[in-house]
Computed example of a mutant assay.
Amino acid sequence: MEHRYLGRSGLKISEITYGNWLTHGSQVENDVATACVRAALDAGITSFDTSDSYANTAAESVLGDALAGERRESLEIFTKVYNATGPKGPNDSGLSRKHIMESIDASLRRLRTDHVDLYQAHRFDVETPLEETMQAFADVVRQGKALYIGVSEWTAEQIRDGVSLAHQLGFQLISSQPEYSMLWRVIEGEVVPTSAELGVSQIVWSPMAQGVLSGKYLPDADAPAGSRAAHESTRNAISRWMTPELLGRVQELRPVADAVGLTMSQLALAWVLQNENVAAAIVGASRPEQVTENVRASGVRLEPEHMARIDEALGDVVERDPARTAERMPAQRPS
């Protein structure tokens, strides 16, 4: 497992990071979740990403239990704040000072630790002044409850404003967590150049496009039993990729994967890691063997000819419009 610096900081994280968005506390039993975390540790993964809103706080608890007994200094634990939690009252979401200060304490209890290495704004809060949000993050850092601050799905302009305020307040905003894959490249036009300029790295989610880039979904065929496309709770999230044209294009990646000696999943992970501004790709798992397979993408370097063949295979099914980041921004706090 290789490690990369996160932003313009001295913190190193594993370039394959284990995340539990759609699994822990919901899709898989806790013993399976623990087995997946153990497989991640055995494979050299040291970085673990979660959120207080995943499974309405349950995912943090499952991860905290799974990591219990590990040397805390050998781990990098990330969590997030913004989305609605608990009974979802008027102050149970967003980036107000009240919600941030209460949420960090609750997250630390569930994760069974006295600090997280990275505390991330899960989305931009249009209802709270950015100054209030960043002051609260500054206080969380000064209290030792988080070592660094990051954001998720912020636009380039929002990242620039956040970094500026962080500098003024004496702490570091060092990461951005956007969606990024061979099929979804909207960060390349604005977010990545701005982040590189400001010393911010990407920790990318859905690098396999909800599993579509694994090649297991075939055009005009039913989704495999047990897959995300077949599961009622995750079917909607993956539906945008499930067109015959796109799935047919994905199948054209198979010869490229074969040529470099990788599975299609490994190729998808290796592809995002070719971007110098990407510090890590987040992978989830519902079985330990998935973790073991995915970590083999660490350290892989794809030749320019292979990158070109990937572009040629996917053609115009790739989404590149930078405006899509702003379009997906919540118009109000979730409830």
Rank of each mutant, 00 (worst) to 15 (best):
L247W: 01
A270H: 06
E252T: 13
L262N: 14
W271G: 07
L273C: 12
P244T: 07
W271C: 06
D258C: 00
L246C: 13
V278Y: 07
L247M: 15
M242W: 04
Q266E: 13
N275K: 15
L273A: 13
V278Q: 11
G248E: 13
A259N: 10
L253Q: 12
L246Y: 03
A268I: 10
L253T: 10
N275H: 15
L253D: 13
L269F: 10
P255H: 01
G261P: 05
P255W: 11
R249Y: 09
A259I: 00
R249H: 06
G248Q: 11
L246F: 07
D258K: 11
Q251S: 12
G261V: 03
M242I: 09
A259H: 12
L267S: 09
L253F: 13
L253M: 14
R254M: 10
V250G: 07
S265I: 02
V250Y: 03
V260P: 02
L273H: 02
R254S: 13
R254Q: 15
G248H: 04
L262Y: 04
A279G: 04
S265P: 00
V260E: 03
A270Y: 05
G261A: 08
N275G: 10
A259Q: 14
V272M: 06
M264P: 14
Q251T: 08
V250Q: 02
Q266G: 09
L267F: 12
W271A: 01
R254Y: 05
V272E: 01
L267K: 11
V260F: 02
A259V: 03
